[in-house]
Amino acid sequence: MSKLLNSLITELRRGTLTLAVLSQLKTPQYGYSLVQLLEKSSVSIDQSTLYPLLRRLEKQELVESSWDTTESRPRKYYVLSEYGKEILEQLQAEWEKTTLELQTLLKGDVENAPD
């Protein structure tokens, strides 16, 4: 794959990362379990991007975090906040709308394209 194509794909995916991560945080997850969850759905995400992203989402009050020290190893769990749930719903709606629009565009079906 060419370098340009690679960078274009990365750019294309970057915007969807937040949505992908938020969608998996309906139940509490810690960093590595989230990686595994995403990988299971074959969504690949750089770990060096994911962990800072989680912190940013917390700062934006979309997720809440808590340390669980009951197990052998302390883990930081992240879960959607109420506000996060609202945002996720809206993002999801937007995503569905966008994919529909793009599908129409890509198929070249101009007449049925939403305006």
């Binding site: 810690y30 960093g31 962990y51 883990r75």
Partner: peptide, 8 residues
């Protein structure tokens, strides 16, 4: 957090 992630 990093340490616990790496150990995971």
């Amino acid at each position: 957090e990093l340490r616990s992630t790496i150990e995971d």
